[in-house]
Amino acid sequence: MKVLLSTTVNGEQVQEAVLPRTSLADFLREDLGLTGTHLGCEMGACGACLVLMDGVPVHACLVLAVQAEGSTIETIEGLNETGAAADLQAHFHDRNALQCGFCTNGMLMSAQALLEANPVPTRDEIRDALSGNYCRCTGYEAIVDAIDTTARDRAARTEAAK
């Protein structure tokens, strides 16, 4: 039996009837067409499905859509539109910190959350923050570099603003 779900996705109010067994990832991808959230393992091991739920990254494959009742969800599409991670995206592009692009959504989510909590992380801290994000293409170094550069740029801008 479907359950009525009321939630906020990328700033829009969403009301949909969903089957309880539908994961948040499947709901976003299939019901809302937000295919930027990817599925790589469906058991919380690869990080391709990360979305921001009430401001923090969670695995959309491990959250049931019905558990998002009353929550605020932001997907890569929403994050892109707000421009909040525009500099991070630009550094990923500049450093070629992605190849096939399948992990990129999750990498951006983890990076964005890290930089919010720890504005100038060390390289080890960056790697630790990515410990649940699998990338088969890059070997990770370019991703670490892109996050590192973003952090230092943001810090320099904050400093300059003072």
């Binding site: 991808r29 299939e30 937000l34 295919t35 930027g36 959230t37 990817h38 599925l39 997907t75 890569i76 599409e77 994050l79 892109n80 995206q89 990923f92 592009h93 500049d94 070629n96 992605l98 096939c100 692009g101 399948f102 990129t104 959504n105 951006l108």
Partner: peptide, 21 residues
């Protein structure tokens, strides 16, 4: 040269077979 097609992925606009219906 930077990869133009990387921009789509960074914006969540990749188009994989698994996305297609």
């Amino acid at each position: 040269q930077r990869r133009e097609n990387a921009r789509r992925h960074l914006a969540g606009r990749g188009r994989f077979v698994s996305d297609l219906a």
